[in-house]
Design a binder for these strands. Structure first.
Lengths: 264, 264
DNA sequence: CGGGCCATTGAAGTATGTCAAAGTTTGTGG
DNA sequence: CCACAAACTTTGACATACTTCAATGGCCCG
């Protein structure tokens, strides 16, 4: 495969009328440079907690960004694993093909998340990652990152921690799904989303769903109809308001109860 | 908490009439020493692929073993994360408490697996790991391991790969569960178990389940009754034979079909 | 403005959870 | 080594939460 994941489809580069600029090329403008210092999510992402030296090392690993329009793929299932990607803005879903041709959503990613760890096992990505809206991600060459980790203990610690967080996120997901009724799953999903929004400085009470009901259903191991019905139910009970993809958590506490214990 | 995870319950040490020997103490007998060279699963575990130097570094990190009787805990939920544990023999389950007091099985572990990565995220284990039979695991001090990784690039690569495999295992599990009917899940579980047995040099066609039907049900997001019924069904159809916990895969190919597509 | 995607809601069928009872295996203590 | 108890497994009957199928309406993008 002579496909360079850091480059991607040419179509991905032209976007919103911007002049096509190769993402691997270092930008000429110094304020849109490839250090993390100006990034909105630097406190969630790799550089968080690193000293000046660690960040200098990190800066050398970063080279340009990948800009994606809604629906475009950051990487594809089966592609060789060469890069981790830090989500800069926009949101993403990871999908996984099943033998029978179906697909399911295995994860959602938001700014500050590191994506692509799944390729570490055997050097190929088992999932595809798709932008749910116009989005941008910073490719990080994995080999170089490991090399850098071998020289910078703080960087190694940071990377390990992020890997651990990825694992824990998986756990939390199965915890949310395991043995729970559909409504509890949807309630849990909304609460988790609210958490994520809060972490990123957005309102925890009101937010926009970036994914379809079908995506949510797939992620939660149920159907889009059940998701829709659950949302309608919560709205009828006054826990939330739903306006298409705009969600308002009117009574998060009650939603939490819905999540924890089955409502009668 | 002044509980030393590498030491564990004193009861865990007395086992099968063996003289109590502190697992942290280096064994006097040279052939039961703490290097990996004599271990049955060295080709699945950490040392795999490491050169002489890498293994020498690794040997210095290992100090004794944790011996557990059936039902005893290797580590507990909430405990500070200090060690990774390499499963040496026996099998394990990881359980995760839910808010409502219930528990669910989040993973099974077999010899060669590295356990405890989940603690990397915030320094505490979110799960407990319990021995399903008499078992032994090698504690590896995490801080020291990271330190060693900073000096040995091959070791770092090996550790990263194992972390990746852990992540992928999670993915595979959700893939097995996601959107599938109970029978397909059980079929998938048997096939995965068969894989694991084969990897470890045991028969892929005939093996003993180390876990209860309830454990399997919990792991697969269903009930013990459904697991039992699925097994009975497969047996009636001639795909497998079931003698309590002894399973024989008579027709793995047909089982694979049961796993992939719904049988009519 | 039109077409396609997405969301909502209803009705009906079914897979699976729940409850219960009986049989089996395993472990313990005399 | 045997006997008893506890834990586990199997199987049946029943209830129900959820999927599936279908039809309608809204939203967004070209």
């Amino acid at each position: 495969m002579d496909f360079n994941p850091a480059l991607g489809d040419v179509a991905a580069i032209r976007w919103h009328g911007l002049a096509p600029s190769l993402p691997m090329a270092r930008s000429a403008a110094p304020d849109t440079c490839d250090t993390c210092d100006t990034c909105a999510v630097r406190n969630l992402c790799l550089p968080c907690g690193l000293d000046r030296e660690g960040r200098a090392i990190l800066a050398k690993l970063l080279s340009g960004r990948r800009r994606l329009r809604k629906g475009q793929k950051l990487y594809r299932e089966g592609e060789p694993f060469q890069f981790l990607y830090a989500a800069r803005f926009g949101s993403f879903k990871a999908i996984c093909r099943l033998r029978d041709g179906g697909e399911y959503v295995s994860a959602f990613h938001f700014p500050g998340d590191l994506m692509g760890f799944d390729g570490m096992a055997d050097g190929h990505h088992p999932t595809s990652v798709i932008a749910l809206e116009n989005a941008e991600a910073c490719p990080i060459a994995y080999e170089q990152l490991m090399e850098a980790c071998a020289h910078s203990s703080p960087l190694l610690k940071r990377v390990s921690r992020l890997m651990g967080m990825q694992l824990v996120r998986e756990y939390r997901c199965s915890k949310m799904v395991s043995g729970r009724h559909a409504e509890e799953r949807v309630a849990g999903f909304l609460l988790q989303l609210s958490e994520w929004m809060k972490e990123r400085g957005y309102s925890a009470r009101e937010f926009q769903l970036r994914m379809s009901r079908a995506d949510i259903g797939s992620y939660l191991g149920t159907t889009l109809e059940t998701v829709s019905r659950s949302l309608s139910l919560f709205a009828r009970e006054g826990c939330i308001t739903v306006d298409n993809r705009r969600i308002q958590l009117v009574d998060p506490e009650r939603l939490r109860i819905c999540h924890a214990v089955r409502t009668g």
